[in-house]
């Protein structure tokens, strides 16, 4: 465990901001049973966010960070987009490098950490938008699956290029009018969860952010399976309330509405993945 890296240097303690001391004293380290139920009590690994008020991506961040089974040894790789502005507020080791190369960077990190620290568990998790994962980075996404990289990829699907002002993406539904699709999108939403299965992911889930507990379960399963078996993929609906014209308190309701249709909960696991999931359940970790 390397959560000691969050211990504050005594000589500097009086100069260190409160939130850093809180990280040492009140964050949940070294406890794989941590989860969204800790949210009201523990120090969160995300300090604040720079998203629009009420953006469901902020819910996703909080639930995911609260659910990481091994945060002290988790590396998060990000891409350009609304989410990338949040990463400086996250207490863990995170990387932003380019738009769309997230699964390539994550592959390199994971392989080298396995080589440098064969005795340790180091989880590598990709968090990126639909534009990053499904469009510009699709080759890097799929090839990391083909190569069976032991990483977890989480797509924040808001069905749009939000950060650049609301352009159509491959994840937009057919017919929807966005910028760059002034006549409405001409083709179907890319079924990325299905592509992930076909490309060799061992655990795949599609869901919305409406249920924190469900997000926790899915994140934990995906990370445990990636550790032992191979690539895992989570496709999470995080509606862009700004671009679909909703108020800041509408995000949850929008997610719930989609729970009943195109984001109905869907889960897939290969037999090897199921074996890991069953074992982790027996161990009380799921």
């Amino acid at each position: 465990m390397s959560y000691k890296i969050y211990q504050v240097n005594e000589a500097l303690r009086e100069f260190v901001p409160r939130e850093v001391i809180d990280l040492e004293e009140r964050a949940t380290w070294g406890n794989p049973k941590r989860g969204v139920m800790d949210l009201p009590y523990a120090k969160e690994l995300i300090e604040e966010h720079s998203l629009c008020a009420g953006c469901p991506e902020s819910m996703a961040f909080r639930y995911i960070l609260a659910s990481l089974p091994n945060p002290e040894d988790t590396i998060i790789v990000n891409s350009t987009g609304c989410t990338s502005l949040v990463f400086p507020h996250i207490a863990l080791h995170t990387v932003h490098s380019l738009f769309g190369n997230q699964n390539a960077v994550a592959s390199g990190i994971k392989r080298v950490l396995e080589w440098r620290f064969p005795e340790k568990v180091k989880d590598v998790v990709v968090l990126a938008g639909d534009g990053a994962i499904v469009d510009i980075g699709l080759d890097c996404t799929l090839h990391s699956f083909f190569r069976q990289e032991k990483i977890t990829t989480i797509c924040f699907d808001n069905e749009v290029y939000a950060n650049t002002g609301g352009q159509e993406s491959g994840s937009t539904v057919k017919g929807h009018v966005f910028k760059m699709a002034p006549k409405g999108k001409q083709y179907e939403k890319v079924p990325m969860w299905q592509l992930a299965i076909d490309a060799g992911c061992h655990y795949v889930a599609r869901l919305t952010v409406s249920s924190p507990k469900r997000v926790e379960q899915v994140v934990k399963k995906a990370i445990y399976v990636a550790r032992e078996v191979g690539p895992t993929y989570i496709h999470l609906y995080t509606p862009c309330i700004l671009e679909i014209g909703l108020n800041s308190d509408d995000g949850l309701e929008e997610a719930r509405a989609r729970d009943k249709e195109r984001f109905a909960f869907f889960e897939y696991a290969t037999p090897e993945a199921q074996e890991v999931i069953n074992r982790k359940k027996e161990e009380g970790l799921l």
Binding site: V95, N101, A104, V105, A106, G108, I109, C140
Partner: peptide, 15 residues
């Protein structure tokens, strides 16, 4: 493109 990003990941991880 992928290779140079993969290598960036390797280098960031200390290789």
């Amino acid at each position: 493109f992928g290779v140079m990003s993969e290598l960036a990941g390797c280098a960031m991880a200390g290789a």
